[in-house]
Computed example of a mutant assay.
Amino acid sequence: MTTTSSTTRRSSHLSRYFYSLRQERGLQPGQLADLLGASDPARAGHVIRSFELSGAISEPWLERLSQALQPDPAELERCHQLDQRDAERDEAQQRQQWELWADQPIEPVLTVRYIPGVCGQRPVPRAFCNSREQAESWCIDELRRCRAKGVLIWSRRQRTWYEQYGHSPRRQEIRFS
């Protein structure tokens, strides 16, 4: 199953399967919560229904539901494989969309951090946009003048970070994660 954090799973096939198991047994979410021995059946029923609709559930809740509904292991594996396939397809589509977005040119800009919480942006003058090195040199001069930290956004994929007064420039490549 696709993991969105160390304790939360998301899966549409799995949630639909558990929904069908609950329906086959003629149980409402609150009744299933009672079977689970929940101290607050209304809240637990909400967790169950949220899982059925969104696919998001924590590992402990999934284990409790599995104990109560006794799903078929082969069907669980099938749901897992379908969810994994869907997650990989979705990630590939997101990556492709991000790549198209990231490849579009932008006007370079310097974001100046004057003090914590107060920033401003200054477009890099066209005369300094012939190369990244020229733009970085202009940024250092600007940051010295402002006595500030900043970041040059050269493209959607490339940044240069500066410490106070434009010191210690370090380049960063932005990638789809």
Rank of each mutant, 00 (worst) to 15 (best):
Q28V: 08
Q31C: 00
L32I: 01
A33V: 02
L35C: 05
L35T: 03
L36Q: 10
L36F: 09
A38P: 04
A38N: 02
D40S: 07
P41N: 01
A42P: 00
G45S: 01
H46Q: 12
H46G: 11
R49Q: 15
F51C: 04
E52C: 05
E52Q: 08
L53E: 10
G55F: 04
G55C: 02
A56M: 07
A56T: 02
A56K: 09
I57E: 03
S58G: 02
P60V: 02
P60S: 03
P60C: 06
W61A: 15
E63V: 10
E63W: 08
E63I: 10
E63G: 08
R64G: 01
L65G: 06
Q70N: 11
Q70K: 11
D72C: 04
P73N: 03
E75F: 07
R78D: 15
R78H: 13
C79M: 07
Q81G: 09
Q81Y: 05
Q81R: 15
D83H: 13
Q84A: 14
R85V: 03
D86P: 09
E88V: 10
R89M: 07
A92C: 09
A92G: 12
Q93L: 15
Q94N: 15
R95M: 15
Q97I: 10
W98S: 01
L100D: 14
L100M: 15
W101N: 03
I106Y: 04
E107P: 01
L110Y: 00
T111Y: 07
R113L: 08
G117R: 06
V118Y: 10
G120M: 08
Q121S: 13
V124A: 03
P125T: 00
R126F: 11
R126N: 13
F128A: 10
C129K: 06
C129G: 09
N130G: 15
S131Q: 07
S131K: 06
S131W: 02
E133N: 13
Q134H: 09
A135F: 14
E136H: 09
S137M: 13
S137D: 14
S137L: 14
C139W: 09
D141F: 09
E142A: 12
L143R: 07
C146V: 14
C146I: 10
R147Y: 11
A148G: 06
K149I: 08
G150Y: 05
G150W: 01
